[in-house]
Design a protein around this nucleic acid. Structure first.
Lengths: 336, 336
DNA sequence: CGATATCAAGTTATCGATATCATTTCTTCA
DNA sequence: TGAAGAAATGATATCGATAACTTGATATCG
């Protein structure tokens, strides 16, 4: 092997390897490895010398090589489920807040975040991860199972189904519903309405909490099914109430948009908020807060949820026992 | 769950390697490799046989090993710049739309997305990527340079600075400003106001387009500096105008929130929108669209922007020549 | 003073996949 | 019939980092 390498003089220097550093420093590869890992097995002397050399030479660790040797990737896959055609999910601010928390926690633990939005596509890449975080609408059990059988440590965001055998982190939707019911009762409302989609697991739990709490006072709320969570949908809901000449004095809407739409319709109908009708939304979005009148809403702390998701996967990866957890919500009372 | 791990029986079967498959099939490793890669170098016979075997055995490619051998990671790092303390960026819907487009395009090209939100932290991981996409507020030149000198193919989202020597994809902010000016001129407005932050590169370009177009008709708009892009900030801006008894008949606000705030203040002041004052926002958010009155706004197609970002990095990675590109915007005229 | 720790560093093997260069078998045509 | 060529498969080396074991030198102790 004479000059098989080095086709040209200084042709492209693609960053040195540990072997290169070793040659330069007159030591063996393993010593370089140890020095860069701050191992106590090398003298402080050489450690410092080699680290300086590495800096000067612009050494970059080859992650693939390390991952191969250590049989782990130091990577967590985050899968954002999306409805195929509608990009609705992507517009919601909350997955992004979750992502923020996740990313923050994982990177500070030395892990990287592998983002996947498409269902089956990146399978190979996902399998290379040490763990999985699944962010979805909580609607697709099949998706959960699909990733489940990859056998990786996995944590799911959403509502906790009773028979689920995987770890779930989510907002305590039931408690959210309860707190709204308590509020309505405390201000003497007797004819509450619920606007939302009871097919949706998270919303269903809000509904259950709401209904159960009210049942304690012998009150049974009216349920208005709404599939869309838009402003218009909320307005329509209220108009339909008026058309049916239903008596109501409080509205619990499952999203701030629904709530704002409801308020708009109420105003159109000449009703006063909150004098005639109390309205509470969900998510405590910045927009709801600066709506006129400022919207009361149930707040979930997504950033924190993301952090928690990340911590749980990391714990799972380290083989620790982990349990599902619901994050508390808080009712922010504003003008409505 | 009794034996959580099953250490005993078949001593953990962590998915077979190519060598395992080779032994089972009675061929050599390389033949397995070729068969799984659909190489024409193996007979259709054995190819089919080996692929079936792989499926049955649940074979999973070891990405690290392949990356090591091929000296590439098939990964693109997406860096979302965030202001340290404020999580404002993360609340904006637009980076997520970009992410959606990016993710979609990259995964369908067989690449994975490595998400990073923190500045220097994940350096090692980022360096392992084949390319970088930088999503920022466009405010931090230093950050760009930092990643620039990693020497990776890089594409930046934002406004194109003239002296920039890196590839930029962004919305054509200048054209956005021009289209608003044209609109105002066409409906006979003579005293326009601009609300936004001229320190911000993207907004500055909107301003320039706006100003230049108006200058053609000898009109010079009033500039209202606003650092925050909130609803309140927009309202304050209009109130300050009124306090100074300035004459104005049109407002170009650099975000929908600013615009909505402005409209609210106008209504408070007893002014009619759009009779007394025309208002145009920016971003065409769903909220602006269902605002009362529905907001006119400049729309940018972020999904597409993400796709374009992804395509450009991929092209760079493949060594092709690539140029910066601005995406057209469109003025959506609604009630205001 | 000989035996055993202690310390710093080196050797070798390995993670799993693939490029390069053989090797074997079978065609095909002069 | 034999040589050249194609087709299918294999042997080996390699990517870069690190674990497990070894070596040599110095220090410590009964």
């Amino acid at each position: 092997m004479s000059s098989a390498k080095k086709k040209q003089p200084a042709a492209a220097r693609p960053s040195p390897t540990m072997a290169d550093l070793a040659k330069l420093a007159g030591v063996s590869k393993i010593t370089v490895s140890r020095a860069l890992a701050d191992s106590p097995l090398v003298s402080p002397d050489t450690r410092e010398r080699i680290q300086a050399l590495a800096r000067k030479q612009g050494y970059k660790l080859n992650v693939s090589a390390r991952n191969l040797r250590l049989r782990r990737s130091h990577t967590v896959a985050v899968i954002v489920e999306m409805q195929p055609s509608s990009s609705r999910t992507m517009w919601d601010p909350y997955p992004l807040s979750l992502l923020g928390g996740i990313s923050q926690e994982l990177t500070s633990a030395g892990y990287s975040v592998l983002l996947t939005t498409r269902q089956g596509a990146a399978d190979a890449a996902v399998q290379a991860a040490d763990g999985v975080i699944l962010l979805g609408q909580g609607e697709r059990e099949d998706a959960v199972r699909l990733y489940d059988k990859m056998g990786l440590p996995m944590v799911v965001w959403g509502a906790r189904g009773d028979r689920d055998n995987h770890i779930v982190v989510g907002s305590d939707n039931r408690q959210g519903g309860i707190s709204v019911a308590e509020r309505f009762l405390s201000i003497g409302r007797r004819h509450p309405v619920f606007i939302g989609n009871s097919e949706h697991p998270e919303m269903a739990q809000r509904l259950h909490g709401f209904v159960d709490e009210l049942a304690g006072q012998g009150i049974k709320p009216l349920l208005l099914q709404r599939v869309d969570w838009t402003l218009d949908s909320g307005a329509d809901a209220v108009r339909s109430l008026a058309a049916r000449k239903v008596r109501f004095d409080a509205i619990f809407a499952c999203s701030d948009l629904l709530a704002m739409g409801a308020i708009r319709a109420l105003v159109e109908l000449g009703l006063s908020v909150p004098n005639d009708v109390s309205v509470v939304g969900y998510d405590d979005t910045p927009l709801g807060a600066s709506f006129l009148p400022p919207l009361s809403s149930v707040r979930q702390n997504w950033q924190e949820g993301g952090v928690l998701l990340a911590r749980k996967v990391l714990a799972l990866i380290q083989g620790q026992a982990v349990s599902s957890q619901m994050l508390p919500t808080s009712l922010i009372v504003r003008a409505t």
